[in-house]
């Protein structure tokens, strides 16, 4: 069983991960958590109490947009998608994380 990420790292990586998932298409809270679990092979375990405040903050910062969709069951579901500003922000996040990753990789080789 691989170790899960430290609390600080989870907090720092939540924004780029959410943006990267939404860059792949419109999505909603429950599915985002599932996707994070699958993509990280269970090493990144997000709680609902953590995800929704992040989503709402990104929405307020206009990096993502949200809309309510009424499903077949008549249930309302809130879908999020990336905004143009969000795409830009994701691109710069990507550079930063690659720089950190590259540095550590060079040091550990």
């Amino acid at each position: 069983m691989p170790n899960s990420l430290s609390k600080d790292l989870v907090a720092a990586s939540s924004k780029p991960i959410v943006l990267a998932i939404l860059a792949r298409g419109e999505n909603y809270g429950y599915a985002i958590i599932q996707e994070v679990r699958e993509r990280s092979n269970g090493r990144v375990e997000w709680t609902e109490g953590m995800l929704y405040p992040v989503l709402h903050r990104l929405e307020e910062q206009k990096l993502i947009r949200a809309r309510w969709v009424v499903g077949e069951s008549g249930r309302k579901r809130k879908y999020y998608r990336l905004s143009p500003q969000g795409s830009k922000s994701l691109a710069s996040d990507r550079e930063e994380w690659n720089a950190v990753h590259g540095t550590l990789k060079a040091l550990w080789e």
Binding site: E48, G49, M50, Y52, P53, H56, R57
Partner: peptide
């Protein structure tokens, strides 16, 4: 239980704004 206790969940919401 997975979603967490309602008071803890609400506290997280308060932190975001």
């Amino acid at each position: 239980r997975r979603l967490g206790r309602t008071d803890a969940l609400a506290a997280e919401f308060a932190k975001s704004d």
